[in-house]
Amino acid sequence: MTNADRNRLKDKAFQFFGIFCTFIGLAVLAVFLIDILIDGIGRIDWEFLNNLPSRRAHRSGIYTAWIGTLWILLLTTIIAFPLGIGAGVYLEEYGKKSRMATILEINIANLAGVPSIIYGLLGLEIFVRLMALGGSLLAGALTLSLLILPIVIVTTREAIKAVPRSIRDGSFALGASKWQTVWYQVLPASFGGILTGVILALSRAVGEAAPLIVIGALAYVPFAPASPMDEFTVLPIQIFNWISRPQAAFTTNAAAAIIVLLVITFILNGIAVYLRHKWQKRIKW
């Protein structure tokens, strides 16, 4: 075998290894989803969705958990959406090139890399204790809002950056002020991108357990929360709690709850992908 033959052989071998690597992650994903489906799908019924948690696995449900998750989603959106967009607009349209903007930029990049459990410690001291919110939905939502804020800001900036300069010029030339230009032109034109980012950030928040455990969200909450000041649990914490128990029936519960959590996550991601696609098609500069 000549040297060139050997090289060609190695080249082919790597190609197969590449295909193997590309698919191994997906294969694991598939095995995993199938395993969960087999374990959990039979457990999902109306009662499972509507029952309160219980000591006995077969009577336990995820009612409090998914209500808690929806509350957290809602409150986090209300808090993180305006803050994140406001910060993104400021950095992209107002504070450009100022010293402050450079500091903010580095700071936001750093925040994005802070482990989520550290946000839990922040929430524990500031929201739970200092602001005396206790282990309430509001404390949880505030904590998660800070956690996803960097993502919302970064995607907002990306979306705003994609709006061409000429649109701003056109608006300014008609006597529009800076804010009018932002409000009437820049934000509507970048809204699809911003929304995509916000939803992706929310799908991240939906799956978070660690920071909420730290602020004291409880696995066992006897009633579904009815106001932002109520104690709560969320699906990931409920799942964690069930996984931690030795009995097989609770593992089945965990698998069933995971299916529900994954459905919520995939729906959110699906909406984000759809929006991105639709927006890209609609606006061609």
Binding site: P164, S166, I167, A173, L174, A189
Partner: peptide, 16 residues
């Protein structure tokens, strides 16, 4: 000022 002095640009830039 810009209400008195209008402007048209090199590339048409209608708002979307």
């Amino acid at each position: 000022l810009r209400k008195q002095v209008g402007m048209v640009f090199q590339k048409p830039n209608p708002f979307p």
